[in-house]
Amino acid sequence: MLEVKDLVVAYGRVNAVKGITFEVGKGQVVTLLGTNGAGKSTTLRSISGLLKPVSGEIWFEGERLDGLPAHKIVERGIAQSPEGRRLFRQMSVEDNLKLGAFSRKDTSGVKADMDRVYDLFPVLGERRTEAAGLFSGGEQQMLAIGRAMMCRPKLLMLDEPSMGLSPIMTQTIMRTIKELQADGVTILLVEQNAQAALSLADKGYVLEVGHIVFSDSGRNLLGDDRVRRTYLGAD
């Protein structure tokens, strides 16, 4: 469904992503693991069209994406919940969700999807008129995911959804990802919490300073010594 080939992305003269290749199959949950500065967020930002790659190709459902402006990529069915949530903090929950559906014209479908987000995260429904900035970290993360779902994406990219969350909240978020997958949404997940990410991923890629160093199924990576040492704190 999504294919990234030899992607190179730079900030100024510094290459942050140095030629990575990976793919995400339809209906899969795929995770990119790596420490800070490995190039995970840069990769997602390039797929979304916020950054222009230096070289390489990004293909989605047989169509080349690199070079398209960001709003065209959203129209193709790719949504991203960015690192740090980046909510419109002064706006209400409802207005944030409406912005998530900006590219859509079917008012009734938007309303139905909004209700679905409220079903998934009842706390958002109860406080839908309150400003997003007033919510706790976990609730804000729910809103960020809900907002990304509002464009009915085929591919949902989540950048560090567990960042700053309690273990219980992290579990809730991971369960939600599982439910979304069951609904047919393909998910590309960037995580530092390797345990949580690998336990639900079909496939994982490990990034180090701009390169993919190895990849395998989520289950195998969970048991992999190198992964256990670097990302799971085992010795």
Binding site: S48, L50, A79, M91, L99, F102, S103
Partner: peptide, 18 residues
């Protein structure tokens, strides 16, 4: 609404499809 969103956070506005 797109104007307000863009003035608050242009990159995130673009992720919304604006």
């Amino acid at each position: 609404r797109a104007m307000i969103a863009t003035s608050q956070d242009p990159d995130t506005a673009r992720l919304m499809g604006i």
